[in-house]
Nucleic acid binder design. Sequence first.
DNA 1: GGGTTTTTCCGCCACC
DNA 2: CTGGTGGCGGAAAAAC
Length: 322
Amino acid sequence: VAGSHVVAVLLHDDTSGFTSGIVGEIFGRPAPAAGMPWYTLRVCAEGGGVTMIGGARLRTGFDLDGLVNADTVIVPGVPHMSDEPSAAAVAALRTAHRGGARLVSICSGTFALAATGLLDGRRAATHWAEAAELSRRHPSIIVDQDVLYVDDGDIITSAGQAAGLDLCLHLVRRDHGADVANRVARRMVIPPHRDGGQAQFIEAPVNADPADDRITGAMAWASGNLATPITVAALAAHARMSVRGFQRHFTRCTGSSPIRWLIRQRVHASLPLLETSDASVETIAARVGFESAVTFRHHFARLMRTSPSTYRKTFRSGRSAL
DNA sequence: GGGTTTTTCCGCCACC
DNA sequence: CTGGTGGCGGAAAAAC
């Protein structure tokens, strides 16, 4: 598509403004750098308007026709989204998908995508409290309860309302690279990437475990010192725990083991370097804390499904026209 | 790519 | 008895 990438957000009654606001903040604001291809946002609703939580009414600039020729269609969740969406909305989503649009849902918006049948046999995420209901209604969908979002190529689903933020940043990363996504994240004053499970949010988010502070403290220390070799023993020492206890607490509050988390951090830190610097792969490997380039390539390939050098080439040769 | 060494993981048990 | 902690050792993974 020449020119601007069209993002259509499809609202439903009882929208809170929060999720649609996320979409607006990321896709509705100007590009982080002048002159680059960016997004055009269309806010759409069946009938040209929706009710909002608290009794407000929102009139949108587009009806379902706003989905026509969109490159991305985003459906934010609302309470009771699990009610069957209208036939017209389902048809519009199907048509958009057939026309090449990627379909995106936030939180319970996944139910609307599920109603199109396009998710059958594929992996999807939704809010943890509604995962069971989604499985019951659409048994062929593989509901992943352990992630913030699932990117299945042309269909991308996210777990909770705030996970929609992670997902939208992920889309920017996919379209324009990690460096641009990081700049958008910085503008919004949020961390550029959150890892892993919603598991950490499921159990007792209210009763904060004092051990979590020591874990996050160790994580912060590691993030700031990625360039140096870091052992699990050193992390445990920073958390003032035994290695065994540290591993236990880390997996509980993070959903992944310490070393896996660390490797992800290192790979993520390498992305902007690959995109914007001319440093060799070896140099970058060292800068993000891998002891050898071989190890770096190994983990990069496992997580990104490409090699560091082809990743670099992809973002050098104007992939952002997507 | 395959083999060796080192590190991490995790079940188990003992302890508080 | 419950619920958390540390240490040990074999299995698995990572680094070389």
